[in-house]
Design a protein around this nucleic acid. Structure first.
Ligand SMILES: [Mn+2]
Ligand SMILES: [Mn+2]
Ligand SMILES: [Zn+2]
Ligand SMILES: [Zn+2]
Lengths: 139, 139
DNA sequence: ATCCTAACTTGGACTTTGTCCAAGTCAATA
DNA sequence: TATTGACTTGGACAAAGTCCAAGTTAGGAT
């Protein structure tokens, strides 16, 4: 993730303390934070950072393909820095926990041509749902 | 969908004009309306129906398994009356159009045991993304 | 080292989507 | 047709996100 800052500089970004902090917060490969969670953690390091800047920066990172937007429920979007290895998500219906998972095969291949209705289909996102070990116990 | 009203009566529902109208609006198998779209169409038939009742009724139908909630973007949830035949969704990234699709194979089968992290996995939702015929033209 | 300025950040107003509640209405049973 | 608990209503409230005018600053130019 530290080379993320390099890549951004290469793209002509001004390296502000705000952007640095957002990048730090997103560090790690199994992180799926909401914008407000990113903001809360950013504030811990840089108390005056605003919500607007967090939203702006996340949006820019998504636009550059450095971060993925994940909408597994109808609630707040989650921001996923693991943008460079294709993966899917396993979500606990009890507590909302999210894990990265790697199903085998190409999910696109399962959609036959006569089910594509003339669309140019470019991606398939799979959300697996179930109960995590903790939530399986207390029904 | 007219037997939906029968099923609901069987479950002890009061058959109010509001619920009847919401059921009528949801009639059809390839409909994916937002709550506000349902409300707008319901108002056309029953001008005094409230947003709260539309939300209540949709929530109840989802709870009964008669309607599915679909969250394909980070925007408003869509309500899908096609709850009795398993299917997935193909979404146009340009205009948001949604089609029901039926990929072959069991999507759950693609997730190996060592990628389940102790979860009891019960469902897999696939969102295929691409451009519809109309949007493929004007880049 | 200092200046300059387009790019960036900020707080708050605003929008969209959805929830909640107290008060009023009505469907269904008797 | 009387009763009553289920249902509906409007509006207040909340969560998630967008937008903007005004202020600040990173980084190139001097
Ligand atoms: Mn992920
Ligand atoms: Mn559908
Ligand atoms: Zn859980
Ligand atoms: Zn389209």
């Amino acid at each position: 993730m530290s080379d993320l800052l390099e890549r951004l500089r290469g793209r002509g970004w001004r390296l502000t303390s705000q952007r640095r902090v957002v990048a730090e917060v997103l560090d790690g490969d199994h992180v799926h934070l909401t914008a407000d969670e990113v903001h809360a953690r950013a504030v811990a390091r840089l108390p005056e950072i605003s919500r607007a800047t967090v939203y702006n920066t996340l949006g820019e990172l998504v636009g550059l393909g450095e971060v993925l937007e994940v909408a597994t429920d109808g609630r707040a979007k989650r921001y996923d820095p693991n943008a460079h290895r294709a993966h899917q998500h396993l979500v606990c219906s009890g507590c909302g926990a999210i894990r990265d998972v790697h199903p085998h095969g190409d999910p696109l291949a399962a959609l036959p041509a006569d089910e594509r209705f003339g669309f140019t289909v470019t991606a398939a996102e799979i959300t697996y749902r179930g109960l995590c070990p903790d939530c399986t116990g207390q029904a």
